[in-house]
């Protein structure tokens, strides 16, 4: 200290720009939140998404029932609760725009724009028309969970999630 001037050092940013890649957001492993909602919000596995996408692929009734059973079991094992069904865009063309895949009755019902979709599916209708989601799950308590193509689940907005 005092009056002695110390040698100057030249400080430069690192030359090696090694990136420390963290996990992609939304894929940060299982949600750490305990409780029922947390189980539902856990990421969907790729096999599950693939199975769901095959549900409306023009299978015969028996095959579809088997697939639905498998999906339900998978949900119950991984996420404790299974959705009652899905709302998805319908590829049959006019007049149909979307359809409901009932996971329990394994029924496929097509709807035209003018038809009113029964509760609790109605809420999911406009979400299903968006191509960003792999599928839109509908639960018996009215909860609607869109699932992104990478398997992560969109958390419901507002404070309603804490009421579960």
């Amino acid at each position: 200290m005092g009056y002695i001037e110390r040698p100057r050092r030249v400080v430069r940013p690192a030359q090696d720009l090694h990136t420390t890649a963290g996990p992609e957001p939304g894929l940060a492993g299982p949600a750490r939140v305990p409780g029922r909602l947390a189980d539902r919000l856990r990421n969907r596995s790729p096999e599950l998404l693939k199975a769901v996408s095959r549900l409306d692929a023009g299978l015969d009734d028996t095959a579809r029932r088997q697939l639905a059973d498998w999906i339900r079991e998978h949900y119950e094992a991984q996420h404790h609760t299974a959705p009652v069904g899905y709302v998805a865009k319908c590829w049959l063309g006019p007049p149909y725009v979307d359809h409901v895949l009932d996971l329990f009755g394994t029924i496929l019902t097509h709807y035209t724009p003018g038809d009113v979709m029964p509760s609790p599916y109605g809420e999911a209708r406009m979400l299903a028309r968006n191509a960003s989601y792999a599928c839109v799950e509908v639960y018996s308590d009215g909860l609607v969970l869109p699932v992104l193509t990478n398997g992560s689940v969109v958390r419901p907005g507002g404070r309603s999630e804490n009421q579960q």
């Binding site: 040698p7 100057r8 050092r9 030249v10 400080v11 430069r12 940013p13 690192a14 030359q15 090696d16 720009l17 090694h18 990136t19 420390t20 890649a21 963290g22 996990p23 992609e24 957001p25 939304g26």
Partner: peptide, 23 residues
Amino acid sequence: FIASLSTATEAGSPFGGRTVPRE
């Protein structure tokens, strides 16, 4: 873009390591 934040985080920041050579 948000997904890319995970890889862009610390690259180029001085936290990634600084070289401090003598003058």
